[in-house]
Nucleic acid binder design. Structure first.
Length: 196
DNA sequence: AATATGCGCAACCGCTCCGTG
DNA sequence: ACACGGAGCGGTTGCGCATAT
């Protein structure tokens, strides 16, 4: 439609960030905070679009990021939350201190989905598959795109088109506070969920 | 040792939501 | 009440690395 682009693409860098760009962004945010992303690149002297800066900061440069492998505890928590929330990665990330929505999304698509399939569980509905998949040992046959296509289909647009309508009531009394909160406070994520 | 294939992460794109005038 | 602009979110893609053949 007639929507103006978020930035002047002709004059912005794309692709991987350089160390210098990272340093500029970090230095600017340390000095001025996360203000208006649209104007930030210019103010910070970066040839990037504001969206790109925001993403880089949130997913990679933020000082409170955990990074590193997910624990079993986090695994289980993600699965539980996904069962309730569907692909609401930002909400799930809000319950996992130090983790980002992008990181969780990637982790889901690469690890957890396969793990659930191996257990004979449909990662979309969290229900037992009727017949265990032939590739129950883990590797989904075919290319990686296949898996992603499967993940993308019906519930993608807009609403939370997942299975929570009748699942959420049967989660053993786990009462989630779904209001948005900064991904910080609870020292033990699982404890926090159960506590809520 | 060289090549092919698969995997995982980082980043981009387009859409939707929300606040403001 | 409506239109516009900015921010945020989820899906998808590209690239580099690791492993298998």
């Amino acid at each position: 439609m007639g929507r103006s682009p978020c930035c002047e693409k002709a004059h912005t860098n794309k692709g991987a960030w350089t160390k210098e760009e990272d340093q500029r962004l970090v230095a600017y945010i340390r000095a001025h905070g996360e203000g208006c992303w649209r104007s930030l690149p210019k103010a910070a002297g970066l040839l990037r679009c504001g969206k790109s800066c925001r993403l880089r900061w949130i997913n990679y440069l933020r000082p409170d990021l955990k990074r590193g492998n997910f624990t079993e505890e986090e695994d289980d928590l993600i699965i539980t939350l996904h069962q309730i929330l569907g692909n609401k990665w930002s909400l799930i990330a809000g319950r996992l201190p130090g983790r980002t929505d992008n990181e969780i999304k990637n982790y889901w698509n690469t690890h957890i989905k396969r793990k659930l399939l191996a257990r004979g569980i449909d990662p979309k509905t969290h229900r037992q598959l009727i017949s265990a998949p032939a590739t129950a040992t883990g590797a989904p046959s075919g290319g990686r795109r296949e898996g992603q296509q499967a993940a993308a289909s019906p519930q993608s647009s807009g609403g939370a088109g997942h299975s929570s309508d009748d699942d959420s009531a049967s989660l053993g009394g786990i009462d989630l506070n779904l209001s948005l909160s900064p991904p910080s406070q609870p020292s033990s994520p699982v404890a926090a969920v159960v506590a809520n």
